[in-house]
Design a protein around this nucleic acid. Structure first.
Length: 292
DNA sequence: GTCCAGGATGGGC
DNA sequence: GCCCATCATGGA
């Protein structure tokens, strides 16, 4: 199976971001190939994604060959994961005039905003990452996945499926506190799992809304504040104008790019981002990339 | 040992 | 509505 890629696309740049943590368990990168387990309906398949031909992604099924009827859904997942349906030409044109972005868009040309298509996964990742450094966040994330997720294959180095809301909803906070989650984060994650499992929150519903409506809906969830809402709008729901302006990583990236000793104020950032309309999410993502 | 980390909540004022 | 203590531990 093959997927056409747009002109402004670099698989290797995407792999840099996907490979940023040793604690990643939801995919495996080896030799410029990504292994990704995927549940489509009842089928559990293992995708092998590579970029051997120009302008194409090659998708091979390592284990579990899905029926032809599911191929469209699989392709749609890949297109979303690598954000292939976005035309980056306007972003790059805007970036040429931008103090912060002009270097980054040259250095990381073809990098796509790597999405987290699964809403539960995106929210869990954001909540776990609140107020702790990224390395520790990945440690907790790995423990969560290895404790309540599902390994695709029991043999060797196999990637994992993210824990299902149904299973997490049945946990007691102490189960997560054993993994060194705080008591509050444990409650947030379990409460969120209940909301997802019962269908009170769904990606499908949120995608029908405008940015501000979806943001308000997310803010109703206990444990989801302004940063988490914006982060999920950006990484999962694909809103181009989502902008986690409170993000410490963003602040540090800006500080380093400008060579400042102190972190920028929110007012500084608003001025620097004045020209980013409709590309705030991409600008943020390229600044994240600059921290690797 | 110190300081900060890709924040959110609940209470006091 | 704003301010602030609290969470809770790892990593640099």
């Amino acid at each position: 199976m093959q997927i056409e890629t747009p002109k402004e696309f670099s698989f290797s740049e995407c792999l840099v971001f996907l490979g940023r943590s040793k604690d990643e368990r939801l995919h495996i990168i080896e030799q410029d190939v990504v292994l990704k387990p995927l549940k489509i309906g009842d089928a559990k398949i293992l995708l092998e994604i590579s970029n051997t031909l120009p302008q194409k992604l090659q998708i091979n099924f390592v284990i579990g060959k899905p029926p032809q009827a599911l191929h469209a859904e699989i392709m749609e997942y890949i297109r979303e994961w690598f954000d292939l349906d976005r035309d980056l030409a306007p972003f790059y044109r805007m970036a040429q005039q931008d103090r912060l972005l002009h270097k980054l868009t040259r250095a990381y040309y073809g990098l796509r905003l790597i999405r987290i298509p699964d809403l539960f996964q995106a929210l869990c990742w954001a909540i776990i990452g609140q107020q702790i450094n990224l390395a520790f966040a990945y440690t907790l994330y790995r423990r969560f996945i290895e404790s309540w997720g599902e390994k695709h294959s029991s043999e060797g180095a196999s990637p994992w499926f993210f824990p299902a809301p149904q299973r997490v909803a049945e946990l007691h906070p102490r189960h997560l506190m054993q993994l060194q989650f705080t008591g509050k984060k444990s409650e947030y994650i379990i409460g969120l799992a209940e909301l997802m499992h019962t269908g009170q929150i769904s990606k499908q519903d949120l995608q029908q809304l405008t940015l501000s409506e979806a943001r308000e809906a997310l803010l109703q969830i206990r444990g989801v504040g302004p940063w988490t809402a914006s982060y999920v709008l950006m990484r999962c729901l694909g809103f181009r104008s989502a902008f986690p302006i409170e993000d410490i990583g963003l602040h540090n990236a800006i500080r380093l790019q400008l060579g400042w000793r102190a972190k920028p104020t929110l007012d500084n950032i608003r001025k620097l981002a004045a020209g980013w309309q409709d590309w705030e999410a991409y600008a943020t993502f390229y600044l994240y990339r600059s921290l690797l």
